[in-house]
């Protein structure tokens, strides 16, 4: 039951993008097409799951026993950066077109604050090992969900009659704000 709560909370109630406002850069940058946003979401989810696992291990076997909490940021960023490198190599091998479509935003997953935020949160909340992985998975799924939702709407917007002043980024920000308010409706669910 607690596992389901952690997962749903990370996906909906405290969605990293739409409620916590973390990782807005790829949220606006890679949400033009559903396909690329799905790829971006999956890549980020993978990094989040691995990062949550490794961060937990580092926190509980290195940082906590040796009293090095001040190294949290450095250690976690190290984990995230390495994982992003791995994902980048894998995607370049597996799907060059996806690699091209994601462009600069793929290496920028490293600096996606949603991932570091997730790693710091799971330490702050002293989750168990299993719960950390579920939390990472939920955060990733929530991130993917937000990206795909916005991408779906933006694809439809291509055909809409938008006032000149709002075309492009302007309307995307408004839609993102509306989505965020909609997710506010989940507050208090868990």
């Amino acid at each position: 039951m607690e596992i389901a709560l952690i997962f749903l909370s990370a996906v909906f109630v405290n969605n990293f993008v739409l409620v916590r406002f973390l990782g807005i850069c790829p949220f606006m940058g890679v949400s033009r097409q559903i396909e690329t946003s799905l790829g971006m979401g999956l890549a980020t989810t993978f990094v989040m799951v691995v990062a949550s696992t490794v961060s937990w291990l580092i926190q509980n076997f290195i940082l906590a026993p040796y009293n090095l909490p001040y190294l949290q940021n450095v250690a976690f960023i190290l984990v995230i950066a390495s994982m992003v490198q791995l994902v980048e190599m894998f995607i370049n091998k597996a799907s060059p077109s996806l690699y091209k479509a994601m462009g600069i935003f793929l290496p920028l997953i490293t600096t996606n604050c949603a991932i570091l935020g997730m790693a710091l949160l799971l330490v702050m909340r002293s989750y168990s090992f299993g719960h950390s992985i579920i939390f990472g998975l939920g955060a990733g799924v929530g991130f993917t969900l937000a990206l795909v939702l916005l991408a779906g709407i933006r694809e439809e917007l291509e055909f809409a009659d938008i006032p000149d002043a709002l075309k492009g980024a302007g309307i995307a920000f408004i839609i993102a704000g509306l989505l965020s308010m909609a997710f506010g409706g989940f507050a208090g669910l868990v």
């Binding site: 190294l71 984990v79 390495s82």
Partner: peptide, 16 residues
């Protein structure tokens, strides 16, 4: 500890 972590990740990335 940081040097150890860095070395582990570097080795992993080199293999990958």
């Amino acid at each position: 500890s940081m040097g150890f972590l860095g070395a582990v990740f570097a080795a992993g990335l080199a293999v990958a």
